[in-house]
Design a binder for these strands. Structure first.
Lengths: 209, 209
DNA sequence: CCAACAATACCGACCGTTCGGTAGCAAACC
DNA sequence: GGTTTGCTACCGAACGGTCGGTATTGTTGG
């Protein structure tokens, strides 16, 4: 393997192939990236890729299935264990942001799938995950409704805002070189709750937050 | 041409090919859609497509360049002629929504490009448009800042919210069968300015809006 | 006469995948 | 202790197919 001078440990070749594939899928897209390009960039032969992943599609699925499952588990844990509703909503946003910081190339690849065509080979795989991701965001918003922080008639509007904050913050981080600091979630939720009307603020009547 | 019983007028074959291509690009993605599939679905011969569009890439660019140019012109017009700052921001959102209502397939294709890989064949074409789209949104937000409606220190946060509202509303319309009524922009801007903190509202001190 | 189409065939390049194989190593057997 | 066997992890070469695109020849309505 051209890029390592030591004998790799068990599974390291597979992980190396996966990392290179994530980067190329993020840069060019799944369909526009050939197996030839992946194996050349990884410094292995084609049969090696097929030995580990069975197919090109199997490789792509391996890249996203496990991490997405982990994210969903994390979101479920936050919604079900955080007792303060506002912190719960902050935690959901932060879990998304941590997912992106953890592996930006994987996140670029995943975002392209989430916003791309549904009939493509990989499109249907992300559909159920998208529903689940939305579900946990809504669960966090409903925690705030139950606590009387957000009016019950404004769940859909609040959902739109929250999902929008997640998407734009991550896209600006992935493609726009904007930072995604660990206080970002807290600041955004505070902004959301308090609104942007400066005329109200001049009355000196801010939110109790 | 298999799909029309009348002889088409001048340019109609080109428009027909373009519509069919937009639908297939929206459904499957640009790279996963072959020229053979496009001409078969359109009921024309391959040389006909090349007669009108020079290349597959030329066809794809034709699908988005003119409409995007029109959208940018429309946004510029709104920001430069609407005198009320809040209506200006509403107008910017509504222009995006009208663009989506006008041709959902083209919008699905465009959104996949905007959120997809930058190094792909079409990725670089949307980069400068994305910058321009963002510019006009920011211009509308700054109109509100100049009018004292939004605090000057919160432009970035407000931008994130506005872009998020645009993206989620259009994605829900394109893929989620949510409505995108003509009052949607007004309602979202009102929601944004007023915030979501119900505890504040119980004090009976809403925004003057 | 020519723009705007068509059918048919074909091109070089590349696609995802499989074939038939080798190298290194550990365990079992004599 | 040496040989044989079996396994894992890789390989070069090639398969059967599709890709985007072009060439040739033809038709037809304005």
């Amino acid at each position: 393997m051209a890029t390592s001078t030591e004998k790799p440990g068990p599974g390291e070749v597979a992980r190396h192939i996966a990392r290179v594939a994530a980067r190329l899928f993020a840069e060019r897209g799944y369909d526009a990236t050939s197996v030839r390009e992946i194996v050349e960039a990884a410094g292995v032969a084609k049969p090696t890729l097929y030995y580990h992943f069975q197919s090109k599609e199997g490789l792509a699925k391996a890249l996203i299935a496990v991490p997405l499952g982990d994210l969903l588990e994390r979101l479920k844990q936050i919604v079900e264990t955080e007792s303060d509703p506002v912190r719960c909503l902050e935690g959901v946003l932060e879990a998304h942001f941590a997912f992106c910081r953890d592996d930006p190339d994987r996140s670029r690849f995943l975002y392209a799938l989430l916003f791309g065509p549904k009939a493509s080979g990989l499109g249907s795989n992300t559909e159920c995950c998208k529903v689940d991701l939305k579900h946990w965001t809504e669960a966090a918003v409903r925690r705030c409704v139950e606590a009387g922080i957000i009016p019950s008639g404004r769940v859909d509007a609040c959902m739109t805002m929250c999902r929008g904050m997640i998407v734009i913050s991550t896209v600006d981080f992935l493609y726009g070189d904007k930072p995604l600091g660990e206080d970002r979630a807290r600041v955004l939720v505070a902004d959301l709750l308090r609104g942007f009307d400066a005329r109200r603020e001049r009355d000196g009547r801010d939110s109790p937050l």
